[in-house]
Design a protein around this nucleic acid. Structure first.
Lengths: 111, 111
DNA sequence: ATACCACATCTCGCCTAGCTAGGTAAGTAA
DNA sequence: TTACTTACCTAGCTAGGCGAGATGTGGTAT
């Protein structure tokens, strides 16, 4: 996750939506959870995360709601929508297809 | 390979370099070979391919050489350099790490 | 009070890189 | 001539990650 800037493009949405299928979360939480699940690999920057969330909300894939926090600033919790779930399923299939195609070229074991 | 525009970012170089480890090839040939190996998945556009090759050459990862063609316009054959091989190895490791991290989040089977 | 840190969100501007849509040009075939 | 395949090139558009900075709350330490 140092130089994967370009690799990450196209997967950000899927990663965020995947986490939100289980429960609504707020931005900061998503970053921490993403880091935990990927065993430290993903460490999203604010400049990546928030614009992405705004994009997803604008496109109707997630819905945000402000909630007070007991420990700091108000949080904006995002929940995935039905459209978001459909979108995610398509993306997962796309990711599978893509990574298989890459593997076929990079590791031509079946040659 | 319709909407994978963003997914492709970060993998283009690896795909091209991987093909060139076996033999020198020219642009048009790389496109066809990539399509064949990925079983039709990758169909690089000229606007993706040529700028990528020029980038790789400028960075010293590949070296180009004009050769006459028996059937059409002259071809520019590219060979991978030692720097290119080293770079590719690093990229392959990066790709493996990245795709595993994505899988861990998208398919949390070991949860 | 002042300083500092963790939490929490936002945005401007930069940069990379894929693609559209055009162009050039050689050879072959109808 | 027209048209298709091979073969290369590029300007301009666009998407999206990220650095850096701003804003604000609340707790703890000095």
């Amino acid at each position: 996750m140092e130089n994967d800037r370009e690799l990450l493009k196209g997967s950000t949405d899927s990663l965020l939506l995947a986490l939100l299928t289980e429960q609504a979360m707020y931005g900061y939480q998503l970053v921490k959870e993403l880091e935990r699940r990927s065993q430290g690999y993903f460490q999203f920057r604010e400049g990546t995360l928030y614009p992405a969330l705004h994009r997803l909300e604008k496109d109707g894939l997630i819905a945000g709601k402000w909630q007070p926090s007991p420990v700091g600033k108000d949080r904006r919790y995002y929940a995935i929508t039905d459209t978001g779930r459909t979108f995610l399923h398509a993306r997962l299939a796309q990711w599978t297809g893509f990574s298989k195609a890459v593997s076929r070229v990079l590791v031509p074991s079946g040659a």
